[in-house]
Structure formats: structure tokens, C-alpha cells
């Protein structure tokens, strides 16, 4: 009786470790991939020197070298900074970035917590990430950090609305808030995936996701040429590493959510009975990887938006399109329920 409960707690902890540990390794190699891919796109080499045991290995040990460097550096506190909040901010960023993974289904049944209101949980957790940014900006006692935090907070709150509306379209189409059910509603080949009937929402969701994670071309919160590095300008060492980890974990999160909501999650694009048409976790990873590549591609090719243009795009273009398309989806769902989501 009591051992059952203890075992359940240990089993859940093991499952959490099985999600978080690979996630951290993926984050490490995402930073490596980012530098190599952008290097390739811009005709440079990227990091290709750091290897193991005297072999260069195309620089594959670079992320570990970076991690060790960041962990060994001193954490410097600015004068008159609020120490407690200064250290809490990166923890909040990281915790919210990891917490959202609890409800992400990697394959059929492969999910830590298969809760009814999974979509709302995801929205709630991703909306909390902004606190790390705001608190970091305020606790640093620095003008640049505060300006970056204000920019970032306004941007995240604005794009969250467009993001939420895009997901409303998904939940109307799937008829459920549960992520596994949403993927099940997209079974049956590439033409059943939601990105076709919800194309505007799909595009809006991913672009808002890029804006929400403060990535190029929406990275005014850390615009180097204007406010140095924005909200984390005063951070160094391990505290900075946590911000970094949180930002990249959020990127992977948005990519995997786009794969789940619009690209059929673990389903194969092919239909039929052959081996290639079987649903598999590999499809999920491939789709997530594709969106991560898009993130890097954006960063390599787009110049930074101006701040008022960002706000205009979010409020005056995305939100009206979202509302209009939700009407369309709802109408179709009522009068032709077999057109979307089986």
C-alpha cells in the first residue's frame, strides 16, 4: 500500500528526469546547431575546433566547453541590486519553460500528465515566463535592463493574445483541450492535419511564437545596438546560463507545440499500411526539428523589426485575422462538421 505510493512518486520523478535531461542536451546542441547553421547560411565556418581526445569532430564538444565556461564564471551582482529577486528571475524563467513540458505528448500515450485542460495549462505556463524577464529587468537596478524588460513584457503580452486566439481555432477544430485528443483529430495523412484548414492561424501561431520567445526578428528586448542586451545585461555566469537555457527550451516548446497543434504530432504524412505511414515519435521529432530550423533561418536572414512595427503587426494584423478565421472555422464546424477534424 505505502510502497505503491512511494513507487509512484519515484516513477513520476524518473519520468520528469527522462524529459528534462534530454531537453537540456537538445538545448546544448541547439546552440551548436544555431551557430553552425547560421554560419553555413552566411558563408562562414561556425565553431568547428573544440573536439574530444585530440579529434576535432566538427566542433561537437563546443556546447560542453561553453557550459563549463559559463558555470565557472563569477556571478556579478550590480550595486544596489535586489539580490533575492536577481537570483530568482532566471529560476522563474527556467521553471516555467520546463513546467509546460509536463503535458506535451511525444507519441500516442507517451505523456507525463494527460490532463483535460492541457491547452489551457500550456497557455498559463508560457504566459508566466514573462515574470522572469520583468523581475530580472527590475532587480538588476539598471536602465538598460529595465527598458529591455518593459519592451519584452509589452511584446509578450501582446503576442500572447494572438497566440491564444490561434489556439482557440485549434480547439474548435479538434473539439477538445486535451493535446492527445487534438493530435488524434488529425489522423489520416497530411491532408487531415490542421495546418490546411487553419492556415492563417498556423502562420500566426508560429510567428507569434517567435515573438513570444524574443527571437530574431522580434528580439528588440535584447537589441544589442540600442539597449546592449536588454533584460539580462547585468547577468553573468550560471545565472545567465539559466536564462539561455530557458530561452532555448521555450523555442523547442513552441516548435513542438506547432507540430502538435497544426502538423499532426506523431502522425506520418503518408497514408496507407506501409512502414513509412506508421505513427512514430520520430515524426514528432522531425517536425519539431523543422520548426527549430525555421527559427535559425529567420535569425540568419531577417533584419530586426522596429518596435512600433512589432506592436502594429500583433494588434492590428494578427488579432483581426485570428478573430475572422475563428468565425470561419466555427461556422464550418457547425454546418459541415466532417470537413475539419474528422
Amino acid at each position: 500500500m505505502i510502497w505503491d505510493q512511494i513507487w509512484m512518486v519515484i516513477w513520476t520523478l524518473l519520468k520528469i528526469v527522462a524529459i528534462v535531461l534530454p531537453l537540456i542536451i537538445v538545448v546544448a546542441y541547439l546552440t551548436y546547431a544555431e551557430r553552425r547553421v547560421i554560419g553555413f547560411m552566411q558563408g562562414r565556418m561556425g565553431p568547428n575546433r573544440v573536439g574530444l581526445f585530440g579529434f576535432k569532430l566538427w566542433g561537437l564538444a563546443q556546447p560542453f566547453a561553453d557550459t563549463v565556461k559559463l558555470l565557472l564564471k563569477e556571478i556579478i551582482f550590480p550595486a544596489n541590486a535586489n539580490k533575492f529577486l536577481f537570483l530568482m528571475a532566471p529560476v522563474i524563467t527556467l521553471a516555467t519553460a520546463f513546467a509546460a513540458w509536463a503535458v506535451v505528448p511525444f507519441a500516442d500515450g507517451l505523456v507525463l500528465a494527460d490532463i483535460n485542460a492541457g491547452l489551457v495549462y500550456i497557455l498559463a505556463m508560457t504566459s508566466l515566463g514573462v515574470y522572469g524577464v520583468i523581475i530580472a529587468g527590475w532587480a538588476s537596478n539598471s536602465k538598460y535592463a529595465l527598458l529591455g524588460a518593459l519592451r519584452s513584457a509589452a511584446q509578450i503580452v501582446s503576442y500572447e493574445i494572438a497566440m491564444g486566439f490561434a489556439l482557440v481555432g485549434v480547439l474548435i477544430a479538434a473539439g477538445s483541450l486535451n493535446l492527445t485528443t487534438i493530435v488524434h483529430a488529425q489522423s489520416g495523412g497530411i491532408f487531415s492535419w490542421f495546418f490546411i484548414p487553419l492556415l492563417p492561424l498556423f502562420v500566426i501561431y508560429f510567428i507569434s511564437g517567435v515573438a513570444e520567445t524574443n527571437r530574431a526578428p522580434f528580439d528588440v528586448a535584447e537589441g544589442e545596438s540600442e539597449i546592449v542586451a536588454g533584460f539580462h545585461v547585468e547577468y553573468s555566469g550560471a545565472a545567465f546560463a539559466l536564462f539561455f537555457l530557458g530561452e532555448y527550451a521555450n523555442m523547442i516548446m513552441i516548435s513542438s507545440l506547432t507540430a502538435i497543434m497544426f502538423m499532426g504530432g506523431w502522425y506520418s504524412p503518408f497514408s496507407g499500411d506501409s512502414w513509412i505511414a506508421q505513427p512514430s515519435i520520430l515524426w514528432f521529432f522531425m517536425k519539431t526539428g523543422f520548426f527549430l530550423l525555421l527559427y535559425l533561418w529567420f535569425r540568419a536572414t531577417f533584419p530586426r523589426y522596429r518596435y512600433d512595427q512589432i506592436m502594429r503587426l500583433g494588434w492590428k494584423i494578427f488579432i483581426p485575422i485570428c478573430i475572422a478565421w475563428i468565425m470561419v472555422v466555427a461556422t464550418v464546424k457547425v454546418y459541415r462538421p466532417d470537413w475539419i477534424g474528422g
Binding site: 504566459s127 513584457a153 509578450i156 503580452v157 500572447e160
Partner: peptide, 15 residues
């Protein structure tokens, strides 16, 4: 409650 009050309203408050 978390989404609306913590995620949106309090952000604007802090702002």
C-alpha cells in the same frame, strides 16, 4: 485564474 490574473493582469500591474 493563473492564465488571466497572473499571466496578464498582474503583468500589466507590475508594468
Amino acid at each position: 485564474l493563473v492564465l488571466v490574473y497572473v499571466g496578464a493582469v498582474m503583468v500589466l500591474f507590475l508594468f
